[in-house]
């Protein structure tokens, strides 16, 4: 900083000016040194504070089961849960993983038939395909092994079998319901820029209305499961590491 009022008590004004110039030069160097050292300290200690790397934590509790960070990552990258474009993938994946756990707990109460080994192997292959080139990194980060992959595949097949048994593969819909679907989703029945007639579109409209009804029935079921169970989303910033209090 410069003090324009700073004067060296010297009758020689030239000396005063020279002193002022020298002062300015010294101050600038001092300033630069302070800035650089400050930046150094900030960067050094800031980086040091990030030395602890969070590798696992609990994101939610479903009854006595924990849904962890790696669970959600595995579920998302293996395609066990779906996220749509535009959605927050982390938050949605967590919700879907919670729902998957709720469904598994419900399925376990009724002990559906064990899936065949061939079906399990096929599902494992499908999961690996969905993970694609990121499979190795996923395995490294989450500790997945063949046994765990088989277990995840088996769980998926058990859920599917239970849902098929409980809700069926399709739901009967009336003509009115099919027509309502046709009227509410006109874009799905456009051919050559023109909406096809209902009579022609009816089979497809029925099928899609049935699928939608089945989907909403299953969603309601999952909502009921959630309302009955003790799901707790664990608080705290995902990804921040709590400060260490133990001496190194």
């Amino acid at each position: 900083m410069q003090n324009s009022e700073c004067k060296i008590q010297n009758a020689d004004t030239d000396s005063f000016v020279a002193t002022q110039v020298n002062s300015v030069r010294s101050s600038s160097r001092y300033l630069l040194a302070v800035c650089l050292h400050s930046a150094f300290f900030v960067l050094h200690y800031g980086a040091t504070a990030q030395a602890w790397q969070l590798i696992e934590r609990v994101l939610a509790r479903v009854g006595t089961n924990a849904v962890t960070m790696t669970d959600v990552r595995a579920a998302r990258e293996l395609g066990l849960v779906e996220t749509k474009p535009g959605e927050n993938p982390e938050a949605v994946a967590l919700e879907r993983t919670i729902e998957r756990q709720l469904m598994l707990d419900e399925v376990a109460r009724f002990s559906p038939p064990e899936p065949a080994d061939a079906a399990v192997a096929e599902e494992v292959a499908a999961m690996k395909l969905r993970a694609g080139s990121g499979l190795d990194a996923l395995i490294n980060a989450t500790g997945l092994n063949d046994e765990r992959l088989r277990q995840l595949a088996r769980d998926t097949l058990r859920i599917r079998a239970y849902i098929a048994q409980r809700f069926g593969m399709s739901v009967q819909v009336t003509e009115d319901e099919a027509r309502r679907y046709y009227e509410e989703h006109p874009a799905e029945f456009i051919r050559d820029g023109v909406q096809i007639a209902f009579e022609e579109a009816e089979p497809v409209a029925r099928q899609r209305a049935s699928a939608e009804r089945l989907r909403s029935t299953i969603e309601k079921w999952v909502r009921d499961l959630r309302s009955r169970s003790g799901v707790v989303i664990v608080g705290g910033e995902g990804g921040s590491v709590p400060p260490s209090t133990s001496p190194r």
């Binding site: 969070l54 590798i55 696992e56 934590r57 609990v58 509790r61 006595t64 089961n65 924990a66 962890t68 790696t70 669970d71 490294n140 980060a141 989450t142 500790g143 997945l144 092994n145 765990r148 707790v232 664990v234 705290g236 590491v241 709590p242």
Partner: peptide, 22 residues
């Protein structure tokens, strides 16, 4: 990673903890 996940699972199954961060 599998050991870490297993440890978290064991500790959470005690039903005494809200969170385990590793």
């Amino acid at each position: 990673a599998s050991d870490v996940r297993e440890t978290v699972g064991h500790i959470m199954s005690l039903n005494r903890f809200d969170d385990v961060q590793v």
